[in-house]
Amino acid sequence: MAKLTIEDLKRIKEEVRSTTVLREGGFRAKINIHMGTCGIAAGARKLMSVVLKEIEEKKINDVMVTTSGCAGLCSREPMATVEILGNPPVKYCDLNEERMKEIFAQHVLKGEIVEAYALARGSETTY
């Protein structure tokens, strides 16, 4: 095995930091919008705009928004993952602007999973 270099350590630090950012950054929730080619073509950017608008209008400071690539389930796009601190992330699929608004109000703000649109609970894997 090759020796660990400073670059390797930096990379590991970055990786670990990204997983602990929710806890340490003072965020209560994280919304991840899937932005692969499939997601974008299906309307993922509209979901992003809806989420940003809600945050702006309701003046919310403890929600983090990120984007990721294709999760390998292109036919169910647009998709988003919602993670509330201390709980497993929930993946939502077949979304549109109205559903995203509903999820924001129910899950992100109140912590209640919207089961009608939920696909699965569990961690994120992207390809």
Partner: peptide, 14 residues
């Protein structure tokens, strides 16, 4: 010092 997706940031950027 603010959240990168805080309301003021979004408002300013838009």
């Amino acid at each position: 010092s603010q959240s990168p997706t805080g309301p003021e940031v979004i408002q300013w950027l838009r």
